[in-house]
Each structure stands twice: as structure tokens, then as C-alpha cells.
Amino acid sequence: MNPTVLTFVLYLLVAGNTTYFLGRSLYTNGEHFLASIFIQRPEIVQPLNTILLIGFYLINLGFVLLFFTQQKDLHNSISIAEFLAEKIGVVYLVLGSMHLFNIFVFITIEKRLYTPNPKR
């Protein structure tokens, strides 16, 4: 196989799977936050969660695909491994920062609504 194609397939497999599992974990764990935020309208939680998940996938997969550009010649396995490590490292850092940003948004909204002695 052409080395560039091979690299792209490997990159897509790793980054795509990471995005998928990250999205799943946000979906399952974020549901508690949404349920707590929309405590008076529980029927809105499930659809909103799904829409947020789709948006998350779109943004992150878009970034993952846009980020795969290469000008180096990938002639042997060492250069492929180094190139992949660099790309996937940056992708992980960006995905991780976005993930942490999401958590902080969740916490901020939830904290603002929920005080220890709720008045509702």
C-alpha cells in the first residue's frame, strides 16, 4: 500500500476511535448534568443530549480530518511512526482541552442553578 494512504488509514482509525469513545463518555456522564440542569423538564434531557453528541462528533471529526496534511516524505516505518505520533499527540491535546472546557461549562451552569439550599 502507498505509505501516505497507510498513514492516513492508521491516523483515521486512532483519532476516529478516540473521538467516538470520548463522545460516548461525554454522552453517558453528561446526562446527569443535563438532568440536574433541566430538573423541571426531564423530557428535554434525552433529545438535547443526542443533539449535543452529534455536534461534538461533527466538530471533532472535522478537526481531525482538517488536521491531516503532510508535506514530509513518508518513506520508511520510522518516519511514519514519528509523523503519526506528532499528529495524534496534537489531536489528543486538542481533544483533551475541548473535553475539559466542556466539563467546566457543565460545572459552571450546574453550579449557578444549584445551590445547597435550593429555593425551588
Binding site: T18, L22, E31, A85, G89, L95, L100
Partner: peptide, 24 residues
């Protein structure tokens, strides 16, 4: 516990990303 799990996943991502970046 949900927050704990989310932070754990973010921690893994950031650190593995940093480890891969200084590989070369």
C-alpha cells in the same frame, strides 16, 4: 462520580498526547 470520570478521561488524553508529542 460523573465529573470524576470525565476528568479522568481528559487527564488521559492530555498526558498521552504530551507523551506522543515528545516521542521523536
Amino acid at each position: 462520580f460523573a465529573t470524576n470520570r470525565l476528568f479522568e478521561i481528559g487527564f488521559y488524553l492530555l498526558n498521552v498526547g504530551a507523551a506522543l508529542l515528545i516521542l521523536k
